[in-house]
Design a protein around this nucleic acid. Structure first.
Lengths: 253, 253
DNA sequence: CGACGGCTTGAGGTAAGTCAATCCACGTGG
DNA sequence: CCACGTGGATTGACTTACCTCAAGCCGTCG
């Protein structure tokens, strides 16, 4: 069973068995566990090494002076927390665990060596970064120009697609440890309004939720409601690899 | 007088005179002019070559099915429109000129050669990309968690800082060809509300505007109002180069 | 079994939106 | 050189999506 990082990169590029083995070995190496709500990286803190999420769910967020929080991204297995390690010295935002999560920790030096020696990695890193940018732009469209229902629907649908690519879904059921509070801080709404919005979506037969999972009942209608267009995730090559993705199963979150 | 692209990169890195000459030569090469409202790149269009803004002002935006528009970024001289050239095949958003703007056009192949042969360039490109990510996150915080006045103030302040780094300001006066319509689409508000917000800011003595310029009357208070923290622009090294920046003068926009 | 974190709901308030004029600067053609 | 057209800025009156406050609920864990 491939590790989620390699798996994510293979959405875009291909590795030789030797390269894959090397990555596996690395991921088997130094690890770090984080409890829910524990910070993985803190704003203004130094950036020394790379953290790759292996299991669990995390978020990037910023705090305002008045204590308000804006969640700017959710991180799922396979995601890299700190690509800025190569060029920046201090974090401009924080990353914290939502569920218990474990990261592979890779020193900046090792990372640089990898990039030099495994040529597809550099391309994969660029791809991941360009995708992060695109996701952020889409989130901006969401918050700037869509109403509450569309925003939530869009975020849910995006998470569904992303979870699928690491094989963490089962028949449109995905892990959903995200609280209504967090959902509110991610969509620029309030908890109360998120609650009412989710209720409406439940009543419409779009979704079903319980404390740990979200079931998408009518994916097609959810996609329509949200105005979701998958082009920004740049997963064109995924279809070609559908088999590879499907063979993956397990509890990553 | 250095070209704005080199100048931007030198906020972060240093080039030898030979390297700088090579970049200058490149920028002197193939160029393309765009009229206001003309698209530089279109959503779903192919990505073939790199466009670097040399003068003018442009924007990245996405259109929704209902015709609404969200502007996700403004591009000023020195900015690269399409870093995705290395890894992606199709644009997931559009870029268009606001004022008449001219770009240096660099083929993907040349760009790759540059990255290989001018080692600081690769670092500078990463830095630019990481900064773009950070700016996008900050915009998300803006739209998600700040009210209209704070949003506008924040955007104005950010533009002031960015314009300063390419020497396009003069005593807190900066080019401002951005219409209230565009400002609305960038901040997730409506034109009407932008108008009232600007009026309030004028009445408070924060800014003065005319059709082509914005004058910041009280930069310090504007910064406070907006909750602006420059850390996300990662310009730490700028101060060291203040002299270099100051020596630049001219009409880039 | 009690406490706590997260979910739910109601009532009332407000920032921002909508609609619809009007105004104003500027460029164009007669 | 002036009337006119046009894109952008302004303003008023009214509406609404989302917020605030405040209470109650419910499941889980020590």
């Amino acid at each position: 069973m491939p590790n989620p990082w390699t798996m994510k990169m293979e959405q875009f590029t291909a590795f030789t068995p030797e390269q894959r083995a090397r990555l596996d070995e690395l991921v088997e190496g130094r690890r770090q566990d984080y409890a829910p709500d524990e910070d993985i990286l803190v704003e203004d803190g130094p950036i020394n090494e790379c953290h790759v999420i292996l299991s669990g769910l995390a978020m990037r967020y910023k705090l305002l002076a008045n204590g308000e929080r804006q969640i700017v991204a959710f991180l799922i297995p396979g995601d890299l927390c700190d690509a800025e390690v190569f060029v920046l010295e201090k974090m401009d935002h924080s990353v914290s665990a939502i569920t218990p999560t474990t990261c592979a920790v890779i020193s900046a030096a090792t990372m640089k060596t990898l990039l030099r020696e495994i040529s597809p990695m550099s391309e994969a890193l660029w791809w991941g970064t360009m995708t992060d940018l695109a996701v952020l732009r889409e989130r901006l469209v969401d918050i700037g120009r869509r109403d509450a229902r569309e925003r939530v629907a869009h975020l849910v649908y995006e998470m569904l697609v992303r979870f699928r690519t690491v094989g963490a879904t089962d028949d449109d059921v995905m892990p959903w440890p995200i609280t209504q509070d967090e959902l509110a801080d991610a969509t620029g709404l309030t908890t109360v309004h998120i609650n009412r919005t989710l209720r409406q979506m439940r009543e419409e037969g779009l979704i079903e939720t319980n404390r740990r999972e979200m079931k998408v009942l009518d994916a097609e209608r959810l996609r329509e409601v949200s105005g979701f267009n998958p082009n920004y995730l740049h997963l064109i090559r995924t279809e070609q690899r559908q088999g590879k993705v499907a063979e993956r199963a397990g509890d990553l979150v």
